[in-house]
Nucleic acid binder design. Structure first.
Lengths: 234, 234
DNA sequence: TGACTTATTATCATTTTGATACTAATTCGC
DNA sequence: GCGAATTAGTATCAAAATGATAATAAGTCA
Protein backbone atom coordinates (compact mmCIF):
# COMPACT_ATOMS: atom_id res chain seq x y z
CA UNK A 1 0.00 0.00 0.00
CA UNK A 2 2.32 2.65 -1.26
CA UNK A 3 0.10 5.69 -1.27
CA UNK A 4 -2.51 6.33 1.39
CA UNK A 5 -1.31 9.26 3.44
CA UNK A 6 -4.62 11.12 3.65
CA UNK A 7 -6.49 10.42 6.82
CA UNK A 8 -9.79 11.22 5.16
CA UNK A 9 -9.25 8.72 2.44
CA UNK A 10 -7.84 6.00 4.61
CA UNK A 11 -10.28 6.27 7.48
CA UNK A 12 -12.72 3.46 7.88
CA UNK A 13 -16.35 3.86 8.84
CA UNK A 14 -18.33 2.08 11.46
CA UNK A 15 -16.19 2.28 14.56
CA UNK A 16 -18.12 2.40 17.80
CA UNK A 17 -16.91 5.25 19.97
CA UNK A 18 -17.94 5.71 23.55
CA UNK A 19 -16.83 7.84 26.45
CA UNK A 20 -16.20 6.58 29.96
CA UNK A 21 -16.19 9.20 32.68
CA UNK A 22 -14.34 8.38 35.88
CA UNK A 23 -15.43 10.78 38.59
CA UNK A 24 -13.19 10.90 41.62
CA UNK A 25 -13.74 12.28 45.02
CA UNK A 26 -11.80 11.99 48.25
CA UNK A 27 -13.22 9.70 50.84
CA UNK A 28 -11.30 9.49 54.04
CA UNK A 29 -7.81 8.54 53.06
CA UNK A 30 -8.77 7.03 49.78
CA UNK A 31 -10.10 7.98 46.38
CA UNK A 32 -13.62 6.98 45.49
CA UNK A 33 -15.17 6.52 42.06
CA UNK A 34 -18.76 7.18 41.05
CA UNK A 35 -20.58 4.22 39.51
CA UNK A 36 -24.09 3.91 38.19
CA UNK A 37 -26.32 0.86 38.24
CA UNK A 38 -25.64 -1.11 35.08
CA UNK A 39 -28.45 -1.95 32.71
CA UNK A 40 -29.85 -5.37 33.65
CA UNK A 41 -27.59 -7.98 32.03
CA UNK A 42 -27.83 -6.89 28.45
CA UNK A 43 -24.48 -8.41 27.60
CA UNK A 44 -23.77 -12.12 27.68
CA UNK A 45 -23.24 -13.42 31.17
CA UNK A 46 -26.16 -12.84 33.38
CA UNK A 47 -25.76 -11.22 36.75
CA UNK A 48 -22.28 -9.81 36.32
CA UNK A 49 -21.32 -6.15 36.18
CA UNK A 50 -24.08 -4.67 38.24
CA UNK A 51 -22.25 -1.38 38.32
CA UNK A 52 -20.71 0.60 35.52
CA UNK A 53 -18.95 3.84 34.85
CA UNK A 54 -21.04 6.70 33.54
CA UNK A 55 -20.68 6.21 29.83
CA UNK A 56 -22.27 7.14 26.56
CA UNK A 57 -21.52 7.84 22.94
CA UNK A 58 -20.92 11.40 21.81
CA UNK A 59 -23.89 12.86 20.05
CA UNK A 60 -23.77 14.46 16.66
CA UNK A 61 -22.45 18.01 16.76
CA UNK A 62 -21.10 17.54 20.25
CA UNK A 63 -17.41 17.76 21.01
CA UNK A 64 -15.77 15.05 23.09
CA UNK A 65 -15.30 17.46 25.98
CA UNK A 66 -18.95 18.48 25.81
CA UNK A 67 -20.03 14.87 25.74
CA UNK A 68 -17.91 14.08 28.78
CA UNK A 69 -19.44 16.96 30.68
CA UNK A 70 -22.94 15.87 29.76
CA UNK A 71 -22.24 12.33 30.91
CA UNK A 72 -20.76 13.59 34.14
CA UNK A 73 -23.76 15.82 34.79
CA UNK A 74 -26.17 13.00 34.07
CA UNK A 75 -24.50 10.77 36.59
CA UNK A 76 -23.55 13.20 39.27
CA UNK A 77 -26.19 15.92 39.00
CA UNK A 78 -23.90 18.83 38.34
CA UNK A 79 -20.66 19.60 36.65
CA UNK A 80 -17.46 18.32 38.24
CA UNK A 81 -14.85 20.82 39.32
CA UNK A 82 -12.43 19.55 36.71
CA UNK A 83 -12.85 17.27 33.74
CA UNK A 84 -10.02 16.13 31.52
CA UNK A 85 -9.33 13.45 29.03
CA UNK A 86 -7.10 10.63 30.13
CA UNK A 87 -6.82 8.88 26.79
CA UNK A 88 -8.32 6.57 24.22
CA UNK A 89 -8.35 2.83 24.67
CA UNK A 90 -9.08 0.07 22.30
CA UNK A 91 -9.34 -0.54 18.66
CA UNK A 92 -9.36 -4.12 17.57
CA UNK A 93 -12.49 -6.12 17.19
CA UNK A 94 -14.06 -7.39 20.38
CA UNK A 95 -17.31 -8.92 21.50
CA UNK A 96 -18.06 -9.64 17.84
CA UNK A 97 -19.39 -6.13 17.61
CA UNK A 98 -16.78 -4.54 15.39
CA UNK A 99 -13.97 -2.30 16.52
CA UNK A 100 -14.60 -0.22 19.59
CA UNK A 101 -12.80 2.82 20.86
CA UNK A 102 -13.35 4.11 24.35
CA UNK A 103 -12.24 7.57 25.31
CA UNK A 104 -11.73 7.85 29.04
CA UNK A 105 -12.16 11.07 30.99
CA UNK A 106 -11.50 11.75 34.60
CA UNK A 107 -13.34 14.31 36.65
CA UNK A 108 -12.97 15.65 40.14
CA UNK A 109 -15.68 16.38 42.67
CA UNK A 110 -15.06 18.17 45.96
CA UNK A 111 -14.94 15.96 48.99
CA UNK A 112 -18.24 15.70 50.78
CA UNK A 113 -20.37 16.93 47.91
CA UNK A 114 -23.48 14.86 48.27
CA UNK A 115 -26.16 14.57 45.61
CA UNK A 116 -25.77 11.92 43.02
CA UNK A 117 -28.53 11.18 40.60
CA UNK A 118 -30.22 8.01 39.52
CA UNK A 119 -28.90 5.73 42.19
CA UNK A 120 -25.30 6.34 41.39
CA UNK A 121 -22.97 5.87 44.30
CA UNK A 122 -19.36 6.23 45.35
CA UNK A 123 -17.05 3.25 45.73
CA UNK A 124 -13.68 3.44 47.38
CA UNK A 125 -10.88 2.42 45.03
CA UNK A 126 -10.07 -0.56 47.20
CA UNK A 127 -13.65 -1.79 47.09
CA UNK A 128 -14.61 -1.38 43.46
CA UNK A 129 -17.19 -3.91 42.33
CA UNK A 130 -16.38 -5.99 39.26
CA UNK A 131 -16.40 -3.96 36.07
CA UNK A 132 -16.03 -4.91 32.47
CA UNK A 133 -12.48 -5.30 31.24
CA UNK A 134 -12.73 -2.10 29.25
CA UNK A 135 -14.13 -0.04 32.10
CA UNK A 136 -11.46 -1.38 34.41
CA UNK A 137 -8.91 -0.06 31.91
CA UNK A 138 -10.68 3.28 31.92
CA UNK A 139 -10.38 3.50 35.67
CA UNK A 140 -6.70 2.58 35.58
CA UNK A 141 -6.03 5.11 32.85
CA UNK A 142 -7.88 7.77 34.78
CA UNK A 143 -5.94 7.15 37.97
CA UNK A 144 -2.65 7.19 36.09
CA UNK A 145 -3.50 10.37 34.20
CA UNK A 146 -4.67 12.15 37.32
CA UNK A 147 -1.59 11.17 39.31
CA UNK A 148 0.65 12.28 36.47
CA UNK A 149 -0.94 15.71 36.50
CA UNK A 150 -0.91 16.31 40.23
CA UNK A 151 1.86 18.82 40.01
CA UNK A 152 0.88 20.47 36.75
CA UNK A 153 -2.77 21.09 37.50
CA UNK A 154 -4.57 22.10 40.67
CA UNK A 155 -5.90 18.58 41.11
CA UNK A 156 -5.76 18.62 44.89
CA UNK A 157 -7.68 21.89 45.12
CA UNK A 158 -10.45 20.56 42.89
CA UNK A 159 -11.01 17.71 45.31
CA UNK A 160 -11.76 20.20 48.05
CA UNK A 161 -14.55 22.71 48.54
CA UNK A 162 -13.81 26.37 47.93
CA UNK A 163 -12.71 26.92 51.51
CA UNK A 164 -10.47 24.39 53.18
CA UNK A 165 -7.92 24.05 55.91
CA UNK A 166 -4.27 23.44 55.21
CA UNK A 167 -4.45 20.11 56.99
CA UNK A 168 -7.20 19.05 54.62
CA UNK A 169 -5.14 20.11 51.65
CA UNK A 170 -2.16 18.19 52.93
CA UNK A 171 -4.32 15.11 53.49
CA UNK A 172 -5.44 15.29 49.86
CA UNK A 173 -1.89 15.48 48.65
CA UNK A 174 -0.92 12.55 50.84
CA UNK A 175 -3.82 10.58 49.42
CA UNK A 176 -2.83 11.40 45.86
CA UNK A 177 0.86 10.73 46.30
CA UNK A 178 0.50 7.81 48.64
CA UNK A 179 3.06 9.05 51.13
CA UNK A 180 3.28 11.27 54.18
CA UNK A 181 4.40 14.85 53.80
CA UNK A 182 6.29 17.06 56.17
CA UNK A 183 3.93 19.61 57.64
CA UNK A 184 6.24 22.57 58.04
CA UNK A 185 7.81 22.14 54.60
CA UNK A 186 4.43 21.67 53.00
CA UNK A 187 3.14 24.94 54.37
CA UNK A 188 6.32 26.84 53.69
CA UNK A 189 6.43 26.00 50.00
CA UNK A 190 2.69 26.41 49.70
CA UNK A 191 2.81 29.92 51.07
CA UNK A 192 5.89 30.73 49.03
CA UNK A 193 3.98 29.78 45.90
CA UNK A 194 1.10 32.11 46.78
CA UNK A 195 -1.35 29.44 45.66
CA UNK A 196 -3.62 29.94 48.63
CA UNK A 197 -5.00 33.00 50.30
CA UNK A 198 -6.26 33.09 53.84
CA UNK A 199 -9.89 33.86 54.54
CA UNK A 200 -10.87 35.38 57.86
CA UNK A 201 -12.83 32.30 58.82
CA UNK A 202 -11.80 29.53 61.11
CA UNK A 203 -13.22 26.09 61.53
CA UNK A 204 -13.33 24.20 64.76
CA UNK A 205 -13.57 20.51 64.10
CA UNK A 206 -13.87 18.38 67.18
CA UNK A 207 -10.95 18.70 69.53
CA UNK A 208 -7.88 20.80 69.00
CA UNK A 209 -7.25 24.32 67.95
CA UNK A 210 -9.49 25.64 65.15
CA UNK A 211 -7.89 25.84 61.73
CA UNK A 212 -7.91 28.84 59.47
CA UNK A 213 -9.75 28.46 56.19
CA UNK A 214 -7.98 29.17 52.92
CA UNK A 215 -9.08 29.40 49.35
CA UNK A 216 -7.30 28.54 46.15
CA UNK A 217 -5.69 31.50 44.42
CA UNK A 218 -4.97 30.64 40.79
CA UNK A 219 -1.38 31.62 40.05
CA UNK A 220 -1.14 34.91 38.19
CA UNK A 221 2.34 34.42 36.88
CA UNK A 222 4.07 31.10 36.65
CA UNK A 223 7.12 31.21 38.80
CA UNK A 224 10.50 30.52 37.37
CA UNK A 225 11.12 26.78 37.41
CA UNK A 226 14.25 25.40 38.87
CA UNK A 227 16.50 22.63 37.64
CA UNK A 228 15.52 19.28 36.26
CA UNK A 229 13.98 16.67 38.51
CA UNK A 230 15.73 13.58 37.21
CA UNK A 231 14.53 11.74 40.27
CA UNK A 232 10.95 11.75 38.99
CA UNK A 233 11.94 9.96 35.85
CA UNK A 234 11.33 6.34 35.06
CA UNK B 1 -33.50 10.12 29.02
CA UNK B 2 -33.55 8.60 32.43
CA UNK B 3 -32.05 5.21 31.81
CA UNK B 4 -29.12 4.68 29.44
CA UNK B 5 -26.15 3.90 31.54
CA UNK B 6 -24.70 1.05 29.49
CA UNK B 7 -22.03 2.18 27.11
CA UNK B 8 -22.74 -0.70 24.80
CA UNK B 9 -26.38 0.19 24.48
CA UNK B 10 -25.89 3.88 24.10
CA UNK B 11 -22.96 3.81 21.72
CA UNK B 12 -23.65 5.05 18.23
CA UNK B 13 -22.29 3.46 15.09
CA UNK B 14 -20.56 5.05 12.18
CA UNK B 15 -18.00 7.31 13.73
CA UNK B 16 -14.89 7.81 11.64
CA UNK B 17 -11.78 7.19 13.68
CA UNK B 18 -8.30 7.99 12.49
CA UNK B 19 -4.89 8.21 14.05
CA UNK B 20 -2.44 11.05 13.52
CA UNK B 21 1.16 10.31 14.36
CA UNK B 22 3.40 13.26 15.16
CA UNK B 23 7.02 12.14 14.95
CA UNK B 24 9.49 14.50 16.55
CA UNK B 25 13.20 14.74 16.22
CA UNK B 26 15.68 17.34 17.37
CA UNK B 27 17.06 19.57 14.70
CA UNK B 28 19.58 22.09 15.87
CA UNK B 29 17.89 24.00 18.64
CA UNK B 30 14.40 23.20 17.54
CA UNK B 31 11.99 20.31 17.26
CA UNK B 32 11.13 19.02 13.83
CA UNK B 33 8.06 17.08 12.73
CA UNK B 34 7.85 14.44 10.03
CA UNK B 35 5.32 15.13 7.27
CA UNK B 36 4.38 13.11 4.24
CA UNK B 37 3.23 14.41 0.87
CA UNK B 38 -0.55 14.78 0.98
CA UNK B 39 -2.75 13.01 -1.51
CA UNK B 40 -3.41 15.41 -4.41
CA UNK B 41 -6.28 17.69 -3.33
CA UNK B 42 -8.92 15.16 -2.57
CA UNK B 43 -10.65 17.52 -0.18
CA UNK B 44 -12.35 20.70 -1.22
CA UNK B 45 -9.90 23.54 -1.77
CA UNK B 46 -7.47 22.75 -4.50
CA UNK B 47 -3.78 23.17 -3.92
CA UNK B 48 -3.86 23.48 -0.17
CA UNK B 49 -2.35 21.12 2.35
CA UNK B 50 0.43 19.65 0.27
CA UNK B 51 1.83 18.06 3.39
CA UNK B 52 0.13 16.00 6.02
CA UNK B 53 0.86 14.08 9.18
CA UNK B 54 1.26 10.33 8.84
CA UNK B 55 -2.27 9.18 9.44
CA UNK B 56 -4.55 6.24 8.92
CA UNK B 57 -7.48 4.41 10.40
CA UNK B 58 -6.89 1.49 12.73
CA UNK B 59 -7.46 -1.83 11.02
CA UNK B 60 -9.71 -4.51 12.34
CA UNK B 61 -8.12 -6.55 15.12
CA UNK B 62 -5.40 -3.98 15.59
CA UNK B 63 -4.99 -2.07 18.82
CA UNK B 64 -4.60 1.67 18.74
CA UNK B 65 -0.99 1.41 19.83
CA UNK B 66 -0.27 -1.15 17.13
CA UNK B 67 -1.91 1.06 14.53
CA UNK B 68 0.18 4.01 15.61
CA UNK B 69 3.34 1.98 15.32
CA UNK B 70 2.39 0.76 11.88
CA UNK B 71 1.69 4.30 10.72
CA UNK B 72 4.97 5.51 12.14
CA UNK B 73 6.87 2.71 10.43
CA UNK B 74 5.20 3.40 7.13
CA UNK B 75 6.19 7.03 7.22
CA UNK B 76 9.60 6.85 8.83
CA UNK B 77 10.88 3.45 7.78
CA UNK B 78 11.42 1.99 11.21
CA UNK B 79 9.96 2.14 14.66
CA UNK B 80 10.41 5.35 16.66
CA UNK B 81 12.25 5.15 19.96
CA UNK B 82 9.13 6.06 21.85
CA UNK B 83 5.50 6.23 20.85
CA UNK B 84 2.72 7.42 23.11
CA UNK B 85 -0.80 8.64 22.83
CA UNK B 86 -1.36 12.32 23.35
CA UNK B 87 -5.14 12.26 23.27
CA UNK B 88 -8.32 12.13 21.25
CA UNK B 89 -9.65 15.15 19.45
CA UNK B 90 -12.95 15.78 17.86
CA UNK B 91 -16.41 14.53 17.92
CA UNK B 92 -19.00 16.77 16.43
CA UNK B 93 -19.93 16.65 12.80
CA UNK B 94 -17.54 18.34 10.40
CA UNK B 95 -16.96 18.47 6.68
CA UNK B 96 -20.41 17.04 6.22
CA UNK B 97 -18.88 13.62 6.68
CA UNK B 98 -20.36 12.61 9.98
CA UNK B 99 -18.64 12.72 13.31
CA UNK B 100 -14.90 12.23 13.28
CA UNK B 101 -12.56 11.35 16.07
CA UNK B 102 -8.83 11.71 15.69
CA UNK B 103 -6.49 10.05 18.12
CA UNK B 104 -3.13 11.76 18.17
CA UNK B 105 0.12 10.00 19.00
CA UNK B 106 3.55 11.45 19.38
CA UNK B 107 6.73 9.59 18.65
CA UNK B 108 10.38 10.32 19.13
CA UNK B 109 13.23 9.65 16.75
CA UNK B 110 16.89 10.09 17.67
CA UNK B 111 18.54 13.20 16.34
CA UNK B 112 20.33 12.68 13.09
CA UNK B 113 18.57 9.44 12.16
CA UNK B 114 18.25 9.72 8.43
CA UNK B 115 16.05 7.46 6.36
CA UNK B 116 12.49 8.47 5.79
CA UNK B 117 10.32 6.64 3.33
CA UNK B 118 8.07 7.76 0.53
CA UNK B 119 9.22 11.33 0.25
CA UNK B 120 8.44 12.19 3.84
CA UNK B 121 10.55 14.96 5.26
CA UNK B 122 11.26 16.84 8.45
CA UNK B 123 9.97 20.35 9.07
CA UNK B 124 11.15 22.53 11.89
CA UNK B 125 8.31 23.54 14.21
CA UNK B 126 8.76 27.17 13.26
CA UNK B 127 8.44 26.37 9.57
CA UNK B 128 5.55 23.98 9.42
CA UNK B 129 3.65 24.15 6.15
CA UNK B 130 -0.10 24.73 6.32
CA UNK B 131 -1.96 21.73 7.68
CA UNK B 132 -5.61 20.97 8.07
CA UNK B 133 -7.23 22.36 11.16
CA UNK B 134 -7.46 18.92 12.70
CA UNK B 135 -3.86 18.02 12.01
CA UNK B 136 -2.74 21.32 13.42
CA UNK B 137 -4.58 20.38 16.61
CA UNK B 138 -2.85 17.01 16.60
CA UNK B 139 0.54 18.71 16.43
CA UNK B 140 -0.35 21.08 19.25
CA UNK B 141 -1.66 18.23 21.38
CA UNK B 142 1.48 16.23 20.71
CA UNK B 143 3.78 19.07 21.69
CA UNK B 144 1.80 19.71 24.86
CA UNK B 145 1.71 16.04 25.82
CA UNK B 146 5.39 15.58 25.19
CA UNK B 147 6.36 18.67 27.17
CA UNK B 148 4.13 17.58 30.04
CA UNK B 149 5.92 14.24 30.21
CA UNK B 150 9.47 15.51 30.01
CA UNK B 151 10.11 14.78 33.65
CA UNK B 152 8.13 11.60 33.98
CA UNK B 153 9.48 9.76 30.97
CA UNK B 154 12.95 9.58 29.41
CA UNK B 155 11.84 11.84 26.56
CA UNK B 156 15.17 13.60 26.20
CA UNK B 157 17.08 10.33 25.99
CA UNK B 158 14.81 9.02 23.26
CA UNK B 159 15.67 12.02 21.12
CA UNK B 160 19.33 11.05 21.26
CA UNK B 161 21.24 8.06 19.90
CA UNK B 162 22.32 5.36 22.32
CA UNK B 163 25.61 7.11 23.08
CA UNK B 164 25.64 10.85 23.64
CA UNK B 165 27.59 13.54 25.39
CA UNK B 166 26.27 15.37 28.39
CA UNK B 167 26.32 18.63 26.45
CA UNK B 168 24.06 17.06 23.86
CA UNK B 169 21.71 15.86 26.56
CA UNK B 170 21.62 19.28 28.12
CA UNK B 171 20.92 20.86 24.72
CA UNK B 172 17.93 18.54 24.27
CA UNK B 173 16.56 19.50 27.65
CA UNK B 174 17.02 23.16 26.86
CA UNK B 175 15.19 22.65 23.58
CA UNK B 176 12.33 20.86 25.29
CA UNK B 177 11.99 23.30 28.15
CA UNK B 178 12.72 26.43 26.18
CA UNK B 179 15.19 27.80 28.69
CA UNK B 180 18.85 27.63 29.50
CA UNK B 181 20.06 25.26 32.18
CA UNK B 182 22.95 25.57 34.55
CA UNK B 183 25.73 23.22 33.49
CA UNK B 184 27.14 22.29 36.87
CA UNK B 185 23.73 21.76 38.47
CA UNK B 186 22.52 19.79 35.49
CA UNK B 187 25.41 17.37 35.71
CA UNK B 188 25.32 17.14 39.46
CA UNK B 189 21.68 16.08 39.64
CA UNK B 190 22.06 13.88 36.58
CA UNK B 191 24.89 11.95 38.15
CA UNK B 192 23.11 11.82 41.47
CA UNK B 193 20.15 10.19 39.76
CA UNK B 194 22.34 7.51 38.19
CA UNK B 195 20.38 7.84 34.96
CA UNK B 196 23.46 7.77 32.80
CA UNK B 197 26.51 5.57 32.81
CA UNK B 198 29.80 6.54 31.26
CA UNK B 199 31.20 4.59 28.37
CA UNK B 200 34.94 4.50 27.76
CA UNK B 201 34.54 6.34 24.48
CA UNK B 202 35.18 9.98 23.82
CA UNK B 203 34.08 12.09 20.92
CA UNK B 204 36.07 14.95 19.54
CA UNK B 205 33.77 17.30 17.70
CA UNK B 206 35.53 20.20 16.03
CA UNK B 207 37.39 22.43 18.43
CA UNK B 208 37.50 22.09 22.14
CA UNK B 209 38.14 19.25 24.50
CA UNK B 210 36.63 15.89 23.54
CA UNK B 211 33.55 14.87 25.46
CA UNK B 212 32.94 11.56 27.12
CA UNK B 213 30.10 9.48 25.78
CA UNK B 214 27.36 8.27 28.08
CA UNK B 215 24.46 5.96 27.69
CA UNK B 216 21.03 5.97 29.28
CA UNK B 217 20.71 3.70 32.28
CA UNK B 218 17.04 3.02 33.02
CA UNK B 219 16.44 3.62 36.72
CA UNK B 220 16.35 0.41 38.72
CA UNK B 221 14.62 1.82 41.74
CA UNK B 222 12.69 5.04 41.77
CA UNK B 223 14.31 7.36 44.23
CA UNK B 224 12.39 8.83 47.09
CA UNK B 225 10.67 11.99 45.92
CA UNK B 226 10.97 15.12 47.90
CA UNK B 227 8.34 17.71 48.74
CA UNK B 228 5.71 19.15 46.49
CA UNK B 229 6.63 21.43 43.63
CA UNK B 230 3.85 23.97 43.90
CA UNK B 231 5.77 26.24 41.57
CA UNK B 232 5.05 23.96 38.62
CA UNK B 233 1.35 24.33 39.09
CA UNK B 234 -0.97 26.47 37.02
C1' DT C 1 -8.46 23.15 86.12
C1' DG C 2 -5.48 20.19 83.76
C1' DA C 3 -4.63 16.55 80.33
C1' DC C 4 -5.07 16.07 75.55
C1' DT C 5 -5.53 17.31 70.73
C1' DT C 6 -4.80 19.82 66.66
C1' DA C 7 -2.91 24.19 64.36
C1' DT C 8 0.73 27.14 63.51
C1' DT C 9 5.27 28.96 63.82
C1' DA C 10 10.29 29.08 65.09
C1' DT C 11 14.91 27.39 65.13
C1' DC C 12 18.62 25.05 63.31
C1' DA C 13 21.38 21.57 60.89
C1' DT C 14 21.58 19.46 56.42
C1' DT C 15 20.98 19.26 51.58
C1' DT C 16 20.40 21.28 47.16
C1' DT C 17 20.99 24.87 44.03
C1' DG C 18 23.19 28.62 41.22
C1' DA C 19 27.10 31.72 40.33
C1' DT C 20 31.65 32.00 39.44
C1' DA C 21 35.83 30.58 38.52
C1' DC C 22 39.16 27.16 37.76
C1' DT C 23 41.49 23.20 35.25
C1' DA C 24 41.76 19.96 31.10
C1' DA C 25 42.13 18.79 26.34
C1' DT C 26 41.59 19.80 21.96
C1' DT C 27 41.70 22.89 17.20
C1' DC C 28 43.13 26.94 14.74
C1' DG C 29 46.06 30.61 13.12
C1' DC C 30 50.48 31.93 12.75
C1' DG D 1 55.80 24.81 17.96
C1' DC D 2 53.10 28.18 20.46
C1' DG D 3 49.49 30.86 22.16
C1' DA D 4 44.56 32.14 21.59
C1' DA D 5 40.17 30.27 21.32
C1' DT D 6 36.91 26.74 22.34
C1' DT D 7 34.53 23.20 24.58
C1' DA D 8 34.42 19.74 28.61
C1' DG D 9 34.44 18.88 33.20
C1' DT D 10 35.19 20.35 38.43
C1' DA D 11 35.73 22.95 42.57
C1' DT D 12 34.36 26.38 45.76
C1' DC D 13 31.23 29.00 48.11
C1' DA D 14 27.08 31.62 49.23
C1' DA D 15 22.13 31.42 48.97
C1' DA D 16 17.97 28.88 49.14
C1' DA D 17 15.16 24.96 50.20
C1' DT D 18 14.24 21.04 53.12
C1' DG D 19 13.46 18.10 57.26
C1' DA D 20 13.70 17.31 62.20
C1' DT D 21 12.46 19.00 66.37
C1' DA D 22 10.44 21.73 69.44
C1' DA D 23 7.88 25.71 71.06
C1' DT D 24 3.60 28.14 71.22
C1' DA D 25 -1.56 28.80 70.42
C1' DA D 26 -6.24 27.65 71.03
C1' DG D 27 -9.54 24.77 71.39
C1' DT D 28 -12.16 20.03 73.63
C1' DC D 29 -12.94 16.76 77.19
C1' DA D 30 -13.07 14.71 81.81
Amino acid sequence: MPDRPSSARAAARGVTVSLDVVLFTARGSELAVLLTPAAPSRTRGAGRDRWALPSDAPRADESLDDAAERIARDAFGSAPSMLEQSGAIGGGRRHNEGPRVTIAYFGLVPEGTASTKRGASWFAMSELPPLSQRQRESVDAAVAAMRARVDQQPIAFRLLPAAFTLSELQAIYELLLGRRLHKASFRRSLHASALVEATDEWRSEGRGRPAQLFRFAPPRRRRQRRGIRFDLLG
